[in-house]
Design a protein around this nucleic acid. Structure first.
Length: 871
RNA sequence: GCCGAAGUGGUGGAAUGGUAGACACGACGGUCUCAAAAACCGUUGGGGCAACCCGUGGGGGUUCGAGUCCCCCCUUCGGCACCA
């Protein structure tokens, strides 16, 4: 067969996409005879802006990886779905005055066609949509499984409340403590809300990290997020009250230096113990703390603030009266919401004590450097020996902490405990566009689970789902939804009106793909056991702690309920980088950025502009920056336009070649020509030899080739090995570079060959090159494969194997260093031993010149590579 | 502020502690052409005629040898629990 002279990518890509679809090539069917491989990208929220070339920085390499896995003989599952519930969809639907249900369907259809455009290997028979009742029926069912295990509970928790819009705001909607729509100051409001008891799994979530192949950075973030620390709980009697104030401390050994206590402004004891004289100051402080974000509150370097409650507590180890303060650097959500302050050994306590003139008593002092607390300039952390209390002379270390904990326990003053930073997972949203929480509130029976046969609790189709004005979900305004009967007694009852946050939907979708259309169960065990767990999970590092921790928690809870047979959902994880676009923007002064102020401040912020807005501002106020692509910034480059100019395969190759998979890249089309040229070179190369291509003939002749052709055979086998290794390790960029080198090497041989002459080495290279290229550029590869007379899809073909004996080099370049600096290179045989290499190096005239007749002090030989002469 | 990741030519990037800059883009020069495009060939970190010297965000250190390991610092990016 002959191939056309020009590489007509548009026709080729259309042709093969149609053939793949016709053959239902990517439809996965369980096959116990084959090893399975489940590859998954985080399912996206299908936004109205559509996919950008940025998304393909993720999808193209993963697609190549999974096509490669298929060629390695795995039964590959590669599904896709839509994370369609949640705030972005709801807000967009309100803005466009559309029904979110229909809007999301349209957007998903658009995403799907864009994904197909570059030939991604999805099994579309498994498409799921989290906002589809057929899906969220099972989200609700899982909620109930957790509820029945005591893993879901209702409790009061604060929400951000905009008093002007009369609505609950997400953190994202609060900017500098103000509502992003109306600029009103945001308040905190307590509301009953639903939580999952993820803290019950803290220890297992830590342990499980040791069993999975995830990037170490992500594991470290999860460990720190869970934040396990060992310490003690100690009760301080409040002076003049029956109440005790319990603190958690990791340093009970410093109790003798506790000179005051600090409780969180939200702590319930505050109202009780505050003296009349301090009441106004405390109330004002509490009010102000409500408007400060936790990030600002926790900032270590910032100026400390706080107010004395007027009350005292008794330090249990020495009977001293210590004042009780409130300050926002203590969080209600961590530990007990109260701390004992040891200014001598904690910098935040030290700063606080200095600011408010509180006593500083060192517990540990370095020998010879003893000084009274008043002279200290900073807290001392670590080092020294105890100078007060019953442990005088003990060093500042874990052993002493342990001894002190035993001492506290023996004297009934406190006990050793393990504490976690991890907090329970708040799942309630006072929003319309989410899966309704399947609970009914009965005046007689309290909370009652919706029976399985009444699932799903359908989200009512309504015209208007604006906020209720009371802080409750918009569902509370819909009587047909709210009014129901108690499943236990049949009496009048009220439905829960909160919906679940989007993290619920995304905490189990990877399970649903095993059996996506099942209406009788969330999944059947046979298919689940075959496909799960996910072998390779790929997504952005922004999911490092929340989504990835929640999904692990649900999996463990489902495992304990006997519903799944594994307790870690994702065996391997990879994070892709993001693609940034060069975006014009407006430089803003401090005032304009919303910080307040009274004049022309310094430039403090920057706001993206669309290209058509740039002309409206003075040139010196415009600055370009690299930002994420998004429709609101008007900087989206769509894959559609790039694919129509260069072809889908060129786009795929470019996205893989441009940078390492995990790195962020600055989008530029300058480099895409390189990928396009590369595919053009492959096309012309194969075109020269397609006619009369004979797989049997080159095998007969291959072992006899010599010289440049032998070198090409070596390159062929080296490259197969290199690309294989790179794919396994997600090094797509160097895999493409290796293929480019290979093609350059093939051309070196063919250019030297008389026209029309065949070479076994060249034919061997071509027959390996096409399948090796297939995962990266599948359309052109299938076309070329057909062009050299093969039939079928490369997706089903087996991956070429490298012959190490052909790949082995017979000559090396020996690097000769003198004192670590490169001085000479010597070409020699690959199998010389160390003594021979050393002799060669010492014989080098360069070395002799630099040694000036001295004997070398030392000679270091790296076998097969390098000799360093130290002299 | 805390946790995590990253910083290498004009540009994207390559480099199990062992030749820094593979592979590309761009630029420059050339071949082909009436011309252009395409394609192909060559040069391309900085300095120096050269021998050589200098170079991987900054400063120290370990080592025969450091882009790579250790300590301190700077900058950028991601996350910080209601965006998901």
């Amino acid at each position: 067969m002959t191939l056309s002279e020009r590489y007509e990518f548009t026709e080729i890509e259309k042709k093969w996409q149609a053939r793949w679809k016709e053959a239902n090539l990517f439809h996965a069917v369980p096959d116990p005879a084959k090893p399975k491989f489940y590859g998954l990208e985080f399912f996206p929220y299908p936004s109205g802006s559509g996919l950008s070339v940025g998304h393909f920085k993720n999808y193209a390499p993963v697609d190549a990886f999974l096509r490669y896995k298929s060629m390695r003989g795995f039964n590959v599952l590669h599904p896709m779905g839509w994370d369609a519930f949640g705030q972005p969809a709801e807000n967009e639907a309100i803005k466009r005055q559309r029904n979110p249900r229909e809007m999301v369907k349209d957007y998903a259809a658009n995403y799907r066609s864009q994904l197909d455009l570059i030939g991604l290997s999805y099994d579309w028979d498994r498409e799921v949509n989290s906002s589809d009742p057929a899906y969220y029926k099972w989200t609700q069912w899982i909620f109930l499984q957790l509820y029945k295990q005591g893993m879901a509970y209702r409790s009061n928790a604060p929400v951000n409340w905009c008093p002007n819009d009369k609505t609950v705001l997400a953190n994202e909607e609060v900017v500098n403590g103000r509502c992003w729509r109306c600029d009103a100051v945001v308040e905190k409001r307590q509301m009953p809300q639903w939580f999952f008891k993820i803290t019950a799994y803290a220890e297992r979530l830590l342990d499980g990290l040791d069993t999975i192949e995830w990037p170490e950075g992500i594991k470290a973030m999860q460990r720190n997020w869970i934040g396990k620390s060992k310490g003690a709980e100690v009760d301080f009697q409040v002076d003049g009250y029956d109440d005790k104030l319990r603190v958690f401390t990791t340093r009970p050994d410093t109790l003798w230096g506790a000179t005051f206590m600090v409780v969180a402004p939200e702590h319930p004891i505050v109202a009780q113990i505050t003296t009349d004289g301090q009441r106004d100051a405390v109330a004002a402080y509490v009010k102000r703390a409500e408007h400060t974000s936790e990030i600002d509150r926790a900032a270590e370097g910032k100026e400390k603030t706080g107010v004395w409650t007027g009350a005292y507590a008794i330090n249990p180890v020495n009977g001293e009266k210590v004042p009780i303060w409130i300050a926002d650097y203590v969080m209600m959500g961590y530990g007990t919401g109260a701390i004992m302050a040891v200014p001598a050994h904690d910098q935040r306590d030290f700063d606080f004590a200095r600011k408010f003139g509180l006593a500083i008593i060192p517990v540990y002092q370095k020998v010879g450097e003893e000084m009274p607390g008043e002279q200290m300039t900073a807290a001392t952390i670590g080092g020294g020996r105890a100078v007060i209390g019953p442990f005088i002379g003990e060093p500042d270390n874990y052993d002493t902490v342990g001894k002190v904990i035993s001492h506290l326990e023996e004297n009934g003053l406190g006990k050793g405990v393990v504490n976690y930073k991890l907090r329970d997972w708040l799942i309630s949203r006072q929003r319309y566009w989410g899966a309704p929480i399947p609970i009914i509130h009965c005046p007689i029976h309290g909370e009652v689970a919706v029976p399985d046969d009444q699932l799903p609790v359908r989200l009512p189709d309504v015209e208007n789902y604006q906020p209720s004005g009371t802080g409750e979900s918009p569902l509370a305004t819909i009587p047909e939804f709210v009014d129901t009967v108690c499943p236990t007694c049949g009496g009048k009852a009220r439905r829960e009106t909160d919906t679940m946050g989007g993290f619920a939907c995304s905490s189990w979708y990877f399970l649903r793909f095993a059996d996506p259309t099942n209406d009788d169960a969330a999944w059947n065990r046979k298919d689940l056991d075959y496909w799960l767990p996910v072998d390779m999970y790929v997504g952005g590092a922004e999911h490092a702690v929340m989504h990835l921790l929640y999904a692990r928690f649900w999996t463990k809870a489902l495992h304990d309920a006997g519903l799944v047979g594994f307790d870690e959902p994702f065996k391997q994880l990879r994070n892709q980088g993001t693609v940034l676009a060069y975006t014009p923007g407006l430089k803003l002064t401090g005032d304009e950025a919303g910080e307040g102020g009274d004049g022309d401040g310094p430039i403090e912020d920057w706001k993206a502009l669309r290209n058509d807005e740039v002309a409206g501002y003075a040139a010196d106020r415009i600055e370009y920056r690299w930002t994420k692509m998004s429709k609101s910034k008007g900087n989206v480059v769509t894959p559609d336009e790039v694919a129509s100019t260069y072809g889908a395969d060129s786009l795929r190759v470019y996205e893989m070649f441009v940078a390492p998979f995990e790195e962020n890249v600055q989008w530029s089309e300058e480099g895409i020509r390189g990928s396009s040229k590369f595919l053009g070179r492959v096309w012309r190369l194969v075109g020269q030899y397609a006619e009369g291509f004979d797989s049997v003939a080159w095998r007969d002749g291959a072992s006899a080739v010599t010289g440049k052709e032998k070198a090409l055979r070596r390159k062929t086998h080296q490259t197969i090995a290199k690309v294989t290794d790179d794919l396994e390790n997600f090094r797509f960029n160097t895999a493409v570079a290796a293929m480019m080198e290979w093609v350059n090497a093939i051309y070196e041989v063919t250019n030297a060959l008389p026209a029309g002459t065949r070479s076994a080495a060249v034919d061997e290279a071509i027959e390996a090159l096409i399948p090796v290229l297939a995962p990266f550029a599948p359309h052109i590869a299938d076309e070329l494969w057909e062009g050299i007379g093969k039939t079928g899809f490369l997706y089903r073909e087996s991956w070429p194997t490298a012959d190490p004996s052909v790949a082995k080099a017979d000559e090396i370049t020996l690097v000769v260093q003198v004192n670590g600096k490169l001085r000479d290179k010597i070409t020699c045989g690959a199998d010389l031993d160390n003594a021979a290499l050393e002799a060669l190096a010492l014989a080098s005239p360069k070395v002799a010149e630099l040694l000036e007749g001295r004997a070398p002090k030392k000679v270091i030989v790296v076998p097969g590579k390098l000799v360093n002469v130290v002299g």
